[in-house]
Design a protein around this nucleic acid. Sequence first.
DNA 1: TCGCATAGGGATAAATTTATCCCATATTGT
DNA 2: ACAATATGGGATAAATTTATCCCTATGCGA
Lengths: 124, 124
Amino acid sequence: MRERKIPLNLNCGLDLAGEVLYGKWKIRLLWFINAGHKRPSELQRKIPDASRRVLNVQLNELEAHGLIKKKIFAVVPPKVEYSLTSFGETIIPVIGTLGKWADENENRLRDLIQNINIKQPEEN
Amino acid sequence: MRERKIPLNLNCGLDLAGEVLYGKWKIRLLWFINAGHKRPSELQRKIPDASRRVLNVQLNELEAHGLIKKKIFAVVPPKVEYSLTSFGETIIPVIGTLGKWADENENRLRDLIQNINIKQPEEN
DNA sequence: TCGCATAGGGATAAATTTATCCCATATTGT
DNA sequence: ACAATATGGGATAAATTTATCCCTATGCGA
């Protein structure tokens, strides 16, 4: 990884959580791996908006952070399977909670995000 | 806000959640506001690693996304108080879950993050 | 023999996010 | 007079993250 010019802030727990979960696709990757989509090509199909490259990068980071592990099969064409480590499994309920919140508020969120700069939301 | 060149991905709930929660300090801001630290200067003292500027920017975004509201008192020196909207309150348990996870795994996380590129963690 | 599937990663450009610096307001205390 | 307090935001630089492009490898099927 690149030499970091600005040191990470790792003061409180939330900093640490941020460090392993930030990344445009990481949460989704964990979620899908947990749901049984183990191969890179499957994940790519599940997340078509991400390029192959970024998924690799983020999978590598998740692996380096000990949330997922990688099994390489010595076959051709190549076959790789990711799975959660036992540590990685502990984060799944957290993601579940977040997803549940997002789903329950999907319409509202979509509205707020889309209408920024068009109108101020009523306070409440 | 700046014109965005690459459109946001807002397919699933998690994308939406990401859109309002991403930002280096947003989660902490929500947490502290909920804990009763309402004034910008208080928040700044609570999060000394962030510059005043960024906190303002992120507070503005949280407000635009309808998670917090701002009350300005017409006094000098200026006084401002933020508080959660009722919608903002609904995200607090989610942050709580994340924080709890992070605290429970603090040592492990700290270890993993610090030792990247020094050794590969044992699988498990 | 070409094309496809599968996986991985270097190099570099572009986009986005953060950081830094600076200025403004108006009152109270030194 | 001058510093400090409190809040806010413009302008611009720097850092970081994503996106793009391209190249590698090896069998299988058309």
